[in-house]
Nucleic acid binder design. Structure first.
Length: 337
DNA sequence: AAGATTTGCAACCGCCTTTCG
DNA sequence: CCGAAAGGCGGTTGCAAATCT
């Protein structure tokens, strides 16, 4: 019954492939095709398991493999596909010509995953890490520019699920009401300790510090977000339109619901959460932020948007702008709890 | 300059599904 | 239809190179 054994595992070589082995494998496959991996090693004169040969061929020796750095477009495609497919590396690789599942998996684990984490994004759910989101939103709004975000509205939108965060928000709110100058002073003092890292809002747009009291008006933000709206719309049309991306994917907000690891408690509020800009009739929905146009080369990838302009830094920054919830290093949270 | 630590990636491992006798 | 191997896939490991102290 059944097939003959794949290969006798005894005496087979393991570890890195030598150029001679590669040559044997390539020559054999070019002549006979990949075909039967069970008999291939013997026929090709290789002391390797067929499985090892297949892996070596599919991950390294195949002539159509594209090597070298991942482009912005490739990286954005990986992120988008991963948000839909999860760790289905072979499915993702099928959408990226010349890239192998192993390569994409490695690139995800060593680059993209870390970058998303640093940007406050959960690499599993692609949702913002709400603990950081809440904290950053609270602190940036209450300490840096109190008119930017209506904290009371934020509280009412159930954004603050963590009891500690809720307590912290309440504390800040009450402190702000009782003595608005105190928080501002605290923030400015802390900020001096880390002046090399300028404060930025959620969209990588530097917010000039409010030099007067917390009730003073802040520079208008809407003018800065206005160009972004068109980019978002452009991105969404591209994202849904298969003509450009060669694949169709549902909206990201729907993806969260369909993901096996989806945590309703963590992401459900996102569906309904509006960040209400204080002076505006324009609300900036979180799901719109999630769909920030990664593919757009402008303005997010334009050099003017970044302090550092090296390719790696640009990738870092555009991931950060994907979701910018970094907690300022200068802030000592324990002071407020 | 040297040792320690971190990073990146090729390759392996083990599980699951498909295929075959 | 059954059982076993092949094939495929995602997770993990080990090591060399790069970076830091």
């Amino acid at each position: 019954m059944g097939r003959a054994p794949c290969c006798d595992k005894n005496g087979l070589k393991k570890g890195p492939w030598t150029p001679e082995e590669d040559l044997k494998l390539v020559n054999y496959i070019q002549t006979h095709g990949p075909g039967n991996w069970r008999t291939l090693p013997k026929n090709a004169g290789l002391q390797r398991c067929g499985k090892s040969c297949r892996l070596r061929w599919t991950n390294y020796l195949r002539p159509d493999i594209k090597r070298g750095r991942f482009s912005f477009e490739e990286e954005e495609t990986i992120i988008q596909l991963h948000s839909v497919l999860g760790n289905k590396w072979s499915a993702i690789a099928a959408r990226l010509p010349g890239r192998t599942d192993n390569e994409i998996k490695n690139y995800w684990n060593t680059h993209i995953r870390k970058r998303l984490l640093r940007s406050g994004i959960d690499p599993v759910t692609h949702a913002p890490r709400l603990d950081l989101l809440d904290l950053s939103s609270i602190l940036s709004s209450s300490l840096s520019c109190t008119n930017l975000l209506n904290l009371s509205n934020l509280l009412s939108t159930q954004a603050l699920l963590n009891p500690d965060m809720l307590r912290l928000a309440s504390t800040i709110l009450s402190l702000r009401n009782e003595n608005p100058d105190l928080l501002q002073q605290n923030f400015q003092e802390n900020n001096l300790c880390n002046s090399s890292q300028p404060q930025q809002n959620h969209f990588e747009t530097p917010v000039p510090p409010c030099t007067t009291t917390s009730n003073a008006p802040c520079p208008p933000l809407l003018n800065q977000t206005q160009p972004m709206q068109s980019d978002i719309e452009d991105f969404l049309s591209n994202f849904v339109n298969p003509q450009r991306n060669d694949f169709t994917t549902p909206m990201l907000s729907e993806n969260f619901v369909s993901q096996p690891s989806y945590n309703p408690a963590a992401t459900a509020p996102l569906e309904n959460m509006n960040f209400q800009l204080n002076n505006g009739d324009q609300n900036l929905r979180v799901d719109s932020i999630i769909s920030t146009p990664l593919s757009s080369s402008t303005p997010l990838n334009s050099s003017s948007a970044f302090v550092n302009s090296s390719p790696e830094d640009e990738k870092e920054s555009y991931c950060s702008s994907y979701f910018k919830f970094d907690i300022p290093d200068s802030l000592d949270i324990s002071d407020f709890i």
